[in-house]
Amino acid sequence: MQDMENLSDVSHLVNEIKHKKLYNSLDIALKTEELLEKLISHDQWKSARELMKLVKSRIKFIRKDLPTETTATSIMRHILKIIREEYESAAKKKGEGQSLHQLVTANSSDILDYSENLGSLRSSILDHLGEYKVEIESSSDNIAAQASEHIHTDEMIMTVGKSNTVEKFLKTAAKDRNFKVVVVEGAPFYYGHSMAASLAKSNIQTIVIPDSAVFAMMSRVNKVIISTHTVLANGGLRAASGIHSVALAAKQFSVPVVVLSHMYKFTPLYVVSNNHEAFNICASPADVIPPSAGKILNDIDVYNPIFDYVPPELVTLFISHQGGNAPSYVYRLLSELYHQDDYDV
């Protein structure tokens, strides 16, 4: 019963995500961080292990209810790593520094049974969390600051759908450079429309094209800059539907594909199939063919997938707040973000 009560905060989070009150990845990230902050500061936990158990149970809850929601689970995993780090550094204060023997024989699980460092552990974790929060909030700006290095004058940039990160990126670049943007409208959700309108307001020359014109336009495009929902462990993407075709066309014309991603979008999961339930969600077919179509709807199947898998070979560069990385480097980034044991929670 205690577990039930404790998990009510995660239930709330899951509910809000389901009800689309939390839609942006940034909002979800901040909310998750808040949730865990509350958990760490108010909850009664005695040792780091207990705390980690609480966090892990929450990760499991979210994975069960929303298998495609990776931002929340990534943040929780990172916080697990923070906890481990803080614990280890607090534990090392007791020890005399790292001798080779300790390094070789020490196993983190041995240390985690300790429950002595209560006071300092909590505060140090909270401090670190505060820094992490700042990092999350400023991630978008940091990415945008790199814009001028990647966009040159008189370039034609292609982007798909709507992303706050990409918008900021392009607007920052537009301050010093003069370039054109081609926005793919992204049917059936048409997020590209609002993106184009917003870019045009900032005096960037914008062209809106339908999804079918991607291959035709690609020969004149200099770069493709997109954002993604998730970055998978192999460097592949789970991105909005239609981006796979864009990436393929870009490869055909040797156009570099630059993916802007925050660190909390990296997940240690792999994916095998595009249609798997844990990977893709199908939304209502009414967006594709409206119910007024009448009788034919009785006999046809209509699919409206939300996500697409893009293999790592098609991605040229990942830009995060720390700088640019190749897809082959993603595994290293993952090991910096999450602890090995937490990959499979």
């Binding site: 079918s212 539907s241 249609n275 063919i289 046809i300 699919y303 409206n304 997938p305």
Partner: peptide, 28 residues
């Protein structure tokens, strides 16, 4: 494509209808 869809359904062909963004989803 809606026009083609209508004609094929009337003739009794089993059809699926998607937009071009779902190409990678159904191509398998």
């Amino acid at each position: 494509g809606k026009e083609l869809l209508r004609r094929l359904v009337v003739a009794g062909v089993k059809c699926t209808y998607v937009l071009i963004n779902s190409l990678s989803y159904i191509m398998n």
